[in-house]
Design a protein around this nucleic acid. Sequence first.
DNA 1: CACATTGATACCGCCGAGGTATCGCCGGGT
DNA 2: ACCCGGCGATACCTCGGCGGTATCAATGTG
Lengths: 292, 292
Amino acid sequence: MAPDKPAPPYGEGMETRELRYFVAVAEELHFGRAAQRLGIAQPPLSRAIRQLERRLGVLLLTRTSRAVALTEAGSVLLREGRAALDAVEAAERRTRRAATGRPGLVLVTKAGAVGELLAKLLDAYAAEPDSVAVEVMLCGVAEQERLLRDGRADVALLHLPYDSTAGFDTEELHAEGQVAVLPAGHPLTDRAELRMADVADLPGLPQPCWPRQDGIYADGPGPRVRDLAQLCQLIALGRASAIMPESCRTQLRQDLAVVPVPDAPVVTTVIAWPPHSRSLALASLIRTATRL
Amino acid sequence: MAPDKPAPPYGEGMETRELRYFVAVAEELHFGRAAQRLGIAQPPLSRAIRQLERRLGVLLLTRTSRAVALTEAGSVLLREGRAALDAVEAAERRTRRAATGRPGLVLVTKAGAVGELLAKLLDAYAAEPDSVAVEVMLCGVAEQERLLRDGRADVALLHLPYDSTAGFDTEELHAEGQVAVLPAGHPLTDRAELRMADVADLPGLPQPCWPRQDGIYADGPGPRVRDLAQLCQLIALGRASAIMPESCRTQLRQDLAVVPVPDAPVVTTVIAWPPHSRSLALASLIRTATRL
DNA sequence: CACATTGATACCGCCGAGGTATCGCCGGGT
DNA sequence: ACCCGGCGATACCTCGGCGGTATCAATGTG
């Protein structure tokens, strides 16, 4: 050790390993399982967390020998730590991508939700003189945010108000009303339009329940669905109803009826990308999109 | 080592230490100075960078024995790595703050640039039933973004189009035109209004040059200034002119004249905060601000 | 009250981060 | 042309800390 090292006033910053360990424990709320998930033994994990607490000077977890719980500070670190780990992963991935020289873009969007807008965008962009290959990635509901944040994707098509654009730069592309989707022949299909309240709790036709970001279904009523096809099937069977953007009607089956719902929230399609992106290809794609 | 460790397919993720080392070298473009700045010797630094390159499978720097330069991938990692390090620091700082139990907010803005808006905001917020202490932090030009990103500040007042809101959530608070500031008695001060072109290159009255984010002045003409007082002094001396938001006129000295410039870009004051903030106090402050 | 579960502690071995000494390369001064 | 000085790379050593196993301590359970 150098004799006159500057000696930083207090703990010289967390290592990502410590963050990964803490996030694992905070998610499992169980040292043993967290250690298993991390591929290490339990004692080093306990020590690492203790050391992290000492270095931060903060109690992160309350442990009894039977249960582990997050403190207030712990839940802050869980949230912020996940974001920080995503940023580190993003740095790694984007660096690797920059090195391979393949300047292709990865666009991510929810399966089935963008109608023909995506097709038009891809066509228009491909016609640009400086366009590069665009890989389209379809993913489940609300997984896009993560992909964009950790560098696996470069750009996304999101839908307000359902998706969150927190932390991204965005441009609005398109706004549209929503329609109720009902089984063909349902009494309400005669109406010219419906209100939210009319569709809210139709007897025997509950709104479906989508999985959360982590793949777990929230508590609540309604049949659990994972994609549009499942949902359409249920509606056709007379077991569910749904409200969705009107552009979806082009993809619906014949045996479904749609009725406009003017008082449903307007769905805005936006193109979103991580801030600080300096990629020319991305800038060109965004320019193309806003000109559509 | 556990006999059946999952064995991650390739390098198990960068450590923040490696990132800090790389950023130091990339900024200095000199291993010796970077090592000195980091408080370590040069050989371990060389090794660490080599190892990082090996683990990423990417060449980050081109070294001849006389010069070090960033590769394309290296500059990506510099940009992304800084953001990642800021996120890690933010996690650390916000966790510490959450633990102390002081839920005070830190608001950051450019010195002298917000006129009375800030005073009104602080008064209105203090009158809210659930308000907490707000620490106001004034900083140099364009330093706010960093403070907000690395967790030293919770919320900022920024000015479009001069500041970047990349990566933050924002709400618009106020928009205003700009005025030209000239020495009292200058011929142009008789006019009712001016155009940008009129003020662009007045003989002997160049626009000033502000430092960049890192404190270094960009190349270019114009006298170098660090704050509004310096600028006013120069204008009063007949050595400079400037264009600034009209709300600044209340803070100007007597010996300066202002003339509206209708074709200057409109300056929008926005309140900005890091995404994912779940603080009730912050939400309340933002609500107050948007209601002004 | 034995027992199982689970986090903490004790102790050990080894990898690797960081140190010093030195080399090889190259540009500039004379 | 030659030597010198600056700089990054290499060689080699030391030691702190990470991860391992064995075990203890606390606590809920039958």
